[in-house]
Simulated scan of single mutants.
Amino acid sequence: MTYRCDHLHLRSRDAVAAARFYVEVLGARETGRDGAPTVSRIMLDLGGLALFIEQAPEATGPAAMPPNLGIEHIGLRVNDIEATVADLQARGIRLVSGITDVRPGLRIAFFDGPDNVRIEVLQRGEPVRA
């Protein structure tokens, strides 16, 4: 058996607002929408990851507060974690943890996205300067 990642599927109380966050803050690209006139799902490309954000029914329970069982976080690799964290803070995104040097060549930081989705930004190796 061979498995490949196809997509990550999230549920949201406000799929449109959640998708806007991933587009505006993280540079995702919207690739499609289902449902009209009410949006039921928005499809995004987040750095090569297909991300589906579904409008959750009203009866859906609240999101678990991290840390929790199940999907723990989304990890996004960046070239320069210091510039990334500065950009997030300038946009008013609250960090859950500041930059941590896990080991030589690995630096990480965490913040929360919509619906309590924990997002990690990580830098491997030295920063790439443009």
Rank of each mutant, 00 (worst) to 15 (best):
N116K: 11
A86R: 14
E72D: 15
L51D: 08
V85S: 09
E54C: 11
R103M: 11
R118M: 14
L46M: 02
D14A: 02
A130D: 13
D115Y: 01
E126I: 07
A64N: 13
A28W: 00
V39G: 00
L49W: 00
C5E: 11
A130C: 10
E30G: 01
R118C: 15
V25C: 06
E58G: 07
R107V: 03
T100K: 08
P67I: 09
T31R: 08
V128M: 01
V25P: 01
R20A: 08
H7C: 13
V85T: 11
I108D: 15
S12T: 00
P104D: 15
L88S: 08
G92K: 05
A17T: 12
F110T: 03
D6F: 12
P67M: 02
D34H: 15
H9L: 07
P114T: 12
R33H: 06
D14Y: 03
P62R: 12
A36W: 15
F111V: 07
N116H: 13
A19S: 08
H9E: 10
G98L: 10
L95D: 09
T84V: 02
A130N: 10
A130R: 06
A83T: 12
L44Q: 02
G47C: 02
D80I: 09
A63P: 00
V128P: 00
L51H: 08
P57K: 13
A56W: 01
V121D: 03
P67N: 02
R4S: 15
Y3E: 07
A63Y: 04
P62S: 14
Q55K: 01
R77Q: 12
A63W: 02
G35P: 06
Q89N: 10
G98T: 10
G113E: 04
A90G: 12
R29N: 05
T31Q: 05
G113W: 04
P66S: 07
A86H: 13
R91C: 07
A50S: 14
I99T: 06
Y3S: 14
L76K: 03
A90T: 09
A18G: 02
L69Y: 14
R118F: 09
V85Q: 07
V25T: 11
R11L: 01
M43R: 13
A83R: 14
R91S: 04
I93H: 14
S12A: 08
P66I: 12
D112E: 15
R4L: 11
E82K: 08
R11F: 10
G61P: 07
D80K: 05
I108N: 13
A19Q: 02
F110S: 09
P127R: 04
E120I: 04
G105N: 07
R107S: 08
R107Q: 10
G47P: 01
A28T: 04
R33A: 08
R13N: 10
G105E: 11
I108P: 06
V96C: 09
E30S: 01
E58V: 15
S12W: 00
T2F: 11
A28E: 00
E54M: 12
S12P: 00
L95S: 10
I81N: 08
H9R: 12
G75A: 14
I99M: 05
P66V: 09
R77I: 09
Y3T: 13
R11V: 01
R20E: 04
